[in-house]
Structures are given as structure tokens and as C-alpha cells.
Amino acid sequence: MLEIKNLHASVDGKEILRGIDLRIGDGEMHALMGPNGSGKSTLSAVLTGNPMYEVTEGSITFNGKDLLSMKPEDRAHEGLFLSFQYPVEIPGVSMTNFMRAALNGKRRYHGEKDLTAAEFIRLMKEKRTLLQLDNKLANRSVNEGFSGGEKKRNEIFQMAMLEPKLSILDETDSGLDVDAMKIVADGVNSLKRADTSCIIITHYQRLLEYLQPEIVHILYKGRIVCTGGMELSRRIEAEGFDWVRNAD
């Protein structure tokens, strides 16, 4: 699915990622943990092609294609999805128009016809129910006036609509109460298939207990310093990151 080799990236001339190597296979769920400022969000920004970040070295291959040479929208069309840590409010653009433009953008890229209005509405309704979002959502502007929990549920709703191959959940659990976290986790679990993969960026054990990732990585100062199973995340929950810092 994804292969990252010796990835270096910087923002405003400051190097944040300092040689990341990561391989994610089909159907795998990986957790990415690490103290604040270790480069977790930078990695998701670089993967999705955020123009603020500059890749200075290394390569990323996504299903055999060179990801770094693609425009952000084409990366999305190829099946890459990011659940934003801070979903952006877009006043004046309704969720319906936004979602329809996104879906049809992907369909056109793959040489498919646009969805009819009826097909689109049916799909919206089906996926909305999954995330327990009410039907007023369709007419509201994207994320405008949404509560923190609604914004995060709306991210997973969009993930359900777009059916990506690789989803990155960037601190999707932050700001969620326990009930909302359960809804989000159930949503993510229900979208899991043998050919879809997921990267979960989080600080907390709770979401990982719901999602049960097979592999846990610890990112520190722009490098993956440790890889293991859920025992790693449990150790972080119990002891914090000091042992990672001390080992460095």
C-alpha cells in the first residue's frame, strides 16, 4: 500500500522529518505516537501534499505510484484520506455541494460518470446514519458552527463517503467525549476492509483499545525510534515518553 523511504521534510527552512522509513501493507492498521512536536502531523501533511511543507529528500510510493509528484487532489483520488486534526470551516459552502464536488472529482478522475442527484442523496443518508449525524447537516456550511465532536464525526462521515484505501486519522480522538469516541471508532471499524489500511495518530490509549492496531510506531525528533505492538502504547499510557527521550 504505502512505502516511505528516508523521508526528510521541512517547514519554513526548519527540518521536521529527519529520515522516516515506513511500510504499510494492505489491510494493516498502524498507530503513530510520539510527544508533541515529534513530526506526526507533519508526516500526514507531507503525505497529503500540503504546500506549506517541503520534501527535501526521500520517496513515497503509494500502490506503486510516486506520491510526491501528484497534486493533493490526485492523491485523494488515488485513495488517500486525512481526517484533519483541526477540520477547516468553510462558510458559504454547503456540505452537500462540498461532498458532491469531492465525490464527482474522484469519479471523473477514474473515468466514471457523475452520481445522479438521487444516488447522491441516498449515499449521504446511508453514511450519515453510520456516524449518527442529523439530516440538517446537508444544508449547513462545511464545519461552520459545528461542535468539536461534530467536526470529528463529520471527518469520519466524509471518509465513509469517499471510501479511501489509506486513511490517516490525525488526533481524531482529541476533544471527543467517550460516547462520541465510540461512535467514531465504530465508524472507522465498520469501514475496515481487507484492502484498506489506516494510520492512527493519537496520544491516548482509549481509541487504540477500540481500533486494535497491529503495529505501533513511536516518532521522536522526526524519526521512527521504536516499533512494536500494543504493548508500546500501553507503556506510553503508563510511563509517558521519558524512556523514549532517555534512550535517545
Binding site: 497529503t48 504546500p51 486525512l82 484533519f84 468553510i90 469531492a102 472529482g105 478522475y109
Partner: peptide
């Protein structure tokens, strides 16, 4: 930020 968010969802720039 809004432009990038939209692109990430697959809306051409």
C-alpha cells in the same frame, strides 16, 4: 487552509 482541505477531499484546485 480551506483550499487545501477541499483538495484533500478530491476537489480540483
Amino acid at each position: 487552509q480551506a483550499l487545501f482541505y477541499m483538495q484533500q477531499r478530491g476537489i480540483p484546485l
